[in-house]
Protein backbone atom coordinates (compact mmCIF):
# COMPACT_ATOMS: atom_id res chain seq x y z
CA UNK A 1 0.00 0.00 0.00
CA UNK A 2 1.32 3.40 -0.93
CA UNK A 3 2.23 5.52 2.00
CA UNK A 4 0.18 8.72 1.99
CA UNK A 5 0.48 10.95 5.00
CA UNK A 6 -2.75 12.88 4.69
CA UNK A 7 -2.61 14.15 8.25
CA UNK A 8 0.75 15.83 7.95
CA UNK A 9 -0.10 17.67 4.77
CA UNK A 10 -3.40 19.00 6.03
CA UNK A 11 -1.89 19.96 9.37
CA UNK A 12 0.92 22.00 7.88
CA UNK A 13 -1.34 24.07 5.70
CA UNK A 14 -3.69 24.86 8.57
CA UNK A 15 -0.87 26.02 10.84
CA UNK A 16 0.90 27.86 8.05
CA UNK A 17 -2.32 29.65 7.31
CA UNK A 18 -2.77 30.64 10.93
CA UNK A 19 0.82 31.79 11.21
CA UNK A 20 0.44 33.96 8.12
CA UNK A 21 -2.61 35.63 9.61
CA UNK A 22 -0.95 36.01 13.01
CA UNK A 23 2.07 37.69 11.40
CA UNK A 24 -0.16 40.46 10.07
CA UNK A 25 -1.42 41.25 13.59
CA UNK A 26 1.24 43.54 14.98
CA UNK A 27 -0.16 43.60 18.53
CA UNK A 28 -0.19 39.82 18.70
CA UNK A 29 3.37 39.66 17.38
CA UNK A 30 4.42 42.21 19.97
CA UNK A 31 2.74 40.06 22.63
CA UNK A 32 4.53 36.97 21.39
CA UNK A 33 7.87 38.80 21.36
CA UNK A 34 7.48 40.13 24.89
CA UNK A 35 6.39 36.74 26.12
CA UNK A 36 9.35 34.94 24.56
CA UNK A 37 11.70 37.55 26.01
CA UNK A 38 10.23 37.19 29.52
CA UNK A 39 10.12 33.42 29.45
CA UNK A 40 13.70 33.14 28.19
CA UNK A 41 14.97 35.59 30.79
CA UNK A 42 13.01 33.73 33.50
CA UNK A 43 14.65 30.46 32.44
CA UNK A 44 18.12 32.02 32.40
CA UNK A 45 17.69 34.21 35.51
CA UNK A 46 20.27 32.47 37.73
CA UNK A 47 22.92 33.11 35.05
CA UNK A 48 21.96 36.52 33.72
CA UNK A 49 20.61 38.33 36.81
CA UNK A 50 22.87 41.29 37.59
CA UNK A 51 23.14 40.42 41.30
CA UNK A 52 22.68 37.39 43.52
CA UNK A 53 19.12 36.85 44.74
CA UNK A 54 20.02 37.24 48.43
CA UNK A 55 22.66 39.98 48.00
CA UNK A 56 21.85 42.76 50.46
CA UNK A 57 23.51 46.10 51.00
CA UNK A 58 22.02 47.60 54.13
CA UNK A 59 24.30 50.66 53.95
CA UNK A 60 22.97 51.47 50.50
CA UNK A 61 19.26 51.19 51.36
CA UNK A 62 16.61 52.16 48.86
CA UNK A 63 17.99 54.05 45.89
CA UNK A 64 16.26 55.18 42.69
CA UNK A 65 17.31 53.70 39.32
CA UNK A 66 20.99 54.24 38.55
CA UNK A 67 23.76 52.87 36.36
CA UNK A 68 24.65 50.18 38.92
CA UNK A 69 21.04 49.27 39.71
CA UNK A 70 18.96 49.83 36.57
CA UNK A 71 15.64 49.68 38.41
CA UNK A 72 16.89 50.90 41.78
CA UNK A 73 17.12 49.01 45.07
CA UNK A 74 14.77 48.23 47.93
CA UNK A 75 15.13 49.21 51.59
CA UNK A 76 17.59 46.36 52.16
CA UNK A 77 19.69 47.55 49.26
CA UNK A 78 18.68 44.57 47.12
CA UNK A 79 18.73 45.10 43.36
CA UNK A 80 15.14 45.47 42.13
CA UNK A 81 15.81 44.11 38.64
CA UNK A 82 17.16 40.92 40.20
CA UNK A 83 14.12 40.67 42.47
CA UNK A 84 11.76 41.16 39.53
CA UNK A 85 13.57 38.53 37.47
CA UNK A 86 13.37 35.96 40.26
CA UNK A 87 9.77 36.97 41.03
CA UNK A 88 8.93 36.53 37.37
CA UNK A 89 10.18 32.95 37.46
CA UNK A 90 7.57 32.13 40.10
CA UNK A 91 4.76 34.22 38.62
CA UNK A 92 5.27 32.72 35.16
CA UNK A 93 5.71 29.23 36.59
CA UNK A 94 2.41 29.50 38.45
CA UNK A 95 0.78 30.79 35.27
CA UNK A 96 2.06 27.98 33.09
CA UNK A 97 1.92 25.06 35.51
CA UNK A 98 -1.55 25.83 36.89
CA UNK A 99 -2.82 26.32 33.34
CA UNK A 100 -1.27 23.00 32.34
CA UNK A 101 -3.10 21.32 35.22
CA UNK A 102 -6.34 22.92 34.07
CA UNK A 103 -5.60 21.92 30.48
CA UNK A 104 -5.06 18.24 31.25
CA UNK A 105 -8.11 17.90 33.50
CA UNK A 106 -10.39 20.02 31.34
CA UNK A 107 -9.51 18.45 27.99
CA UNK A 108 -9.75 14.90 29.32
CA UNK A 109 -13.00 15.54 31.14
CA UNK A 110 -14.62 17.35 28.22
CA UNK A 111 -13.43 14.85 25.62
CA UNK A 112 -14.65 11.84 27.58
CA UNK A 113 -18.02 13.45 28.32
CA UNK A 114 -18.50 14.55 24.73
CA UNK A 115 -17.34 11.25 23.24
CA UNK A 116 -19.31 8.87 25.41
CA UNK A 117 -22.39 11.08 25.54
CA UNK A 118 -25.67 9.95 27.00
CA UNK A 119 -26.02 9.57 30.73
CA UNK A 120 -22.29 9.71 31.46
CA UNK A 121 -22.13 13.04 29.66
CA UNK A 122 -25.15 14.36 31.55
CA UNK A 123 -23.66 13.45 34.92
CA UNK A 124 -20.19 14.77 34.06
CA UNK A 125 -21.46 18.11 32.81
CA UNK A 126 -23.83 18.38 35.76
CA UNK A 127 -20.77 18.17 38.00
CA UNK A 128 -19.16 20.95 35.99
CA UNK A 129 -22.31 23.07 36.34
CA UNK A 130 -22.35 22.65 40.10
CA UNK A 131 -18.64 23.41 40.43
CA UNK A 132 -19.14 26.47 38.25
CA UNK A 133 -21.59 27.88 40.74
CA UNK A 134 -19.14 27.51 43.64
CA UNK A 135 -17.43 30.73 44.68
CA UNK A 136 -13.90 29.55 43.99
CA UNK A 137 -12.06 32.76 44.70
CA UNK A 138 -13.15 32.47 48.32
CA UNK A 139 -12.41 28.76 48.35
CA UNK A 140 -8.84 29.28 47.23
CA UNK A 141 -8.32 31.83 50.00
CA UNK A 142 -9.76 29.26 52.40
CA UNK A 143 -7.49 26.50 51.07
CA UNK A 144 -4.42 28.67 51.47
CA UNK A 145 -5.41 29.48 55.04
CA UNK A 146 -6.20 25.94 56.04
CA UNK A 147 -3.30 24.10 54.44
CA UNK A 148 -0.60 26.68 54.73
CA UNK A 149 0.81 28.69 51.87
CA UNK A 150 2.41 26.02 49.82
CA UNK A 151 3.43 26.53 46.20
CA UNK A 152 2.36 23.10 45.01
CA UNK A 153 -1.06 23.50 46.59
CA UNK A 154 -1.38 26.85 44.88
CA UNK A 155 -0.75 25.22 41.48
CA UNK A 156 -3.31 22.53 42.15
CA UNK A 157 -5.93 24.82 43.65
CA UNK A 158 -5.81 27.31 40.80
CA UNK A 159 -5.63 24.57 38.18
CA UNK A 160 -8.60 22.85 39.76
CA UNK A 161 -10.64 26.02 39.34
CA UNK A 162 -9.74 26.87 35.80
CA UNK A 163 -10.43 23.53 34.12
CA UNK A 164 -14.19 23.98 34.02
CA UNK A 165 -14.41 26.25 30.99
CA UNK A 166 -11.81 24.11 29.23
CA UNK A 167 -14.01 21.05 29.78
CA UNK A 168 -17.04 22.82 28.31
CA UNK A 169 -15.14 24.00 25.24
CA UNK A 170 -13.64 20.55 24.65
CA UNK A 171 -16.98 18.80 25.04
CA UNK A 172 -18.59 21.12 22.48
CA UNK A 173 -15.78 20.43 20.04
CA UNK A 174 -15.90 16.68 20.50
CA UNK A 175 -19.65 16.55 20.11
CA UNK A 176 -19.36 18.34 16.78
CA UNK A 177 -16.43 16.20 15.61
CA UNK A 178 -17.60 12.77 16.59
CA UNK A 179 -20.40 12.73 14.04
CA UNK A 180 -17.94 13.27 11.20
CA UNK A 181 -16.91 10.52 8.82
CA UNK A 182 -13.29 10.27 9.83
CA UNK A 183 -14.31 9.43 13.39
CA UNK A 184 -16.79 6.85 12.17
CA UNK A 185 -14.05 5.41 10.02
CA UNK A 186 -11.78 5.21 13.05
CA UNK A 187 -14.51 3.48 15.05
CA UNK A 188 -15.14 0.96 12.29
CA UNK A 189 -11.41 0.25 12.16
CA UNK A 190 -11.80 -0.91 15.74
CA UNK A 191 -9.71 1.75 17.46
CA UNK A 192 -10.27 2.12 21.18
CA UNK A 193 -12.12 5.22 22.42
CA UNK A 194 -8.96 6.51 24.15
CA UNK A 195 -6.99 6.23 20.91
CA UNK A 196 -9.71 8.00 18.96
CA UNK A 197 -9.85 10.80 21.50
CA UNK A 198 -6.08 11.14 21.58
CA UNK A 199 -5.29 10.70 17.89
CA UNK A 200 -8.33 12.22 16.19
CA UNK A 201 -10.42 14.38 18.47
CA UNK A 202 -7.88 16.34 20.52
CA UNK A 203 -5.72 17.34 17.51
CA UNK A 204 -8.77 18.59 15.65
CA UNK A 205 -9.92 20.66 18.61
CA UNK A 206 -6.50 22.23 19.15
CA UNK A 207 -7.45 25.71 17.88
CA UNK A 208 -9.96 26.64 20.59
CA UNK A 209 -7.83 24.89 23.20
CA UNK A 210 -4.75 26.92 22.32
CA UNK A 211 -6.70 30.17 22.32
CA UNK A 212 -8.36 29.47 25.64
CA UNK A 213 -5.07 28.33 27.16
CA UNK A 214 -3.43 31.61 26.16
CA UNK A 215 -6.25 33.51 27.83
CA UNK A 216 -6.22 31.31 30.96
CA UNK A 217 -2.56 32.01 31.78
CA UNK A 218 -3.13 35.72 32.51
CA UNK A 219 -6.14 35.05 34.70
CA UNK A 220 -4.14 32.45 36.65
CA UNK A 221 -1.27 34.90 37.06
CA UNK A 222 -3.68 37.52 38.32
CA UNK A 223 -5.08 35.08 40.85
CA UNK A 224 -1.59 34.26 42.16
CA UNK A 225 -0.72 37.95 42.40
CA UNK A 226 -4.01 38.65 44.18
CA UNK A 227 -3.27 35.98 46.78
CA UNK A 228 0.34 37.06 47.20
CA UNK A 229 -0.71 40.67 47.59
CA UNK A 230 -2.99 39.67 50.48
CA UNK A 231 -0.11 37.69 51.98
CA UNK A 232 -1.85 34.37 51.31
CA UNK A 233 0.14 33.28 48.27
CA UNK A 234 3.89 33.10 47.74
CA UNK A 235 5.80 33.51 51.01
CA UNK A 236 9.25 35.03 51.60
CA UNK A 237 12.09 34.20 51.06
CA UNK A 238 10.53 33.28 47.71
CA UNK A 239 9.10 36.19 45.81
CA UNK A 240 6.65 36.86 43.00
CA UNK A 241 5.40 39.94 41.19
CA UNK A 242 2.31 40.07 43.37
CA UNK A 243 4.44 40.01 46.51
CA UNK A 244 6.80 42.69 45.14
CA UNK A 245 3.78 44.88 44.31
CA UNK A 246 2.50 44.43 47.84
CA UNK A 247 5.87 45.49 49.31
CA UNK A 248 6.02 48.36 46.86
CA UNK A 249 2.56 49.57 47.87
CA UNK A 250 3.69 49.78 51.49
CA UNK A 251 6.57 52.12 50.76
CA UNK A 252 5.36 53.81 47.57
CA UNK A 253 5.26 57.25 49.14
CA UNK A 254 9.04 57.37 49.61
CA UNK A 255 10.15 54.82 47.01
CA UNK A 256 7.59 54.80 44.16
CA UNK A 257 9.86 52.77 41.84
CA UNK A 258 9.41 49.75 44.11
CA UNK A 259 5.72 49.74 43.14
CA UNK A 260 5.98 50.90 39.55
CA UNK A 261 8.52 48.45 38.10
CA UNK A 262 7.04 45.21 39.46
CA UNK A 263 3.61 46.52 38.44
CA UNK A 264 4.93 47.22 34.96
CA UNK A 265 6.37 43.70 34.71
CA UNK A 266 3.05 42.09 35.62
CA UNK A 267 0.91 44.39 33.47
CA UNK A 268 3.16 44.02 30.43
CA UNK A 269 2.97 40.25 30.68
CA UNK A 270 -0.80 40.30 31.03
CA UNK A 271 -1.05 42.64 28.04
CA UNK A 272 1.20 40.41 25.96
CA UNK A 273 -0.81 37.29 26.76
CA UNK A 274 -4.15 38.97 26.08
CA UNK A 275 -2.97 40.42 22.76
CA UNK A 276 -1.54 37.08 21.73
CA UNK A 277 -4.76 35.29 22.77
CA UNK A 278 -6.93 37.69 20.78
CA UNK A 279 -4.59 37.43 17.81
CA UNK A 280 -4.60 33.63 17.93
CA UNK A 281 -8.38 33.63 18.08
CA UNK A 282 -8.51 35.58 14.85
CA UNK A 283 -5.67 33.65 13.24
CA UNK A 284 -7.08 30.23 14.06
CA UNK A 285 -10.56 31.49 13.26
CA UNK A 286 -11.89 29.92 16.40
CA UNK A 287 -15.26 31.52 16.53
CA UNK A 288 -16.32 30.19 13.18
CA UNK A 289 -14.93 26.70 13.64
CA UNK A 290 -16.32 26.48 17.16
CA UNK A 291 -19.87 26.96 15.89
Amino acid sequence: MAHIDINAEKGTSLWEDAWRRLKKNRLALFGLGVLVLFVVSALLTPWIAPYAYDAQNLDLGATPPSAQHWLGTDIFGRDLLTQIMYGGRISLAVGFVATAVALVIGVTWGAVAGYIGGRVDAVMMRIVDILYALPFMIFIVLLMVVFGRNLLLLFLAIGAVEWLTMARIMRGQVQALRKQEFVEAAISLGLSPMTIIRRHLVPNALGPIIVYTTLTIPSVMLLEAFLSFLGLGIQPPKTSWGLLISYGAETMEEYPWLLIFPGLALTTTLFALNFLGDGLRDALDVRRSAD
Binding site: A225, G242, I245, A249, M252, L259, G263, L266
Partner: peptide, 9 residues
Protein backbone atom coordinates in the same frame (compact mmCIF):
# COMPACT_ATOMS: atom_id res chain seq x y z
CA UNK B 1 -4.66 44.04 32.52
CA UNK B 2 -4.34 46.40 35.49
CA UNK B 3 -5.15 44.43 38.63
CA UNK B 4 -7.06 46.10 41.45
CA UNK B 5 -4.15 45.78 43.85
CA UNK B 6 -1.95 47.75 41.45
CA UNK B 7 -4.52 50.33 40.32
CA UNK B 8 -5.42 51.18 43.94
CA UNK B 9 -1.91 52.11 45.09
Amino acid sequence: CMPTFLLGP
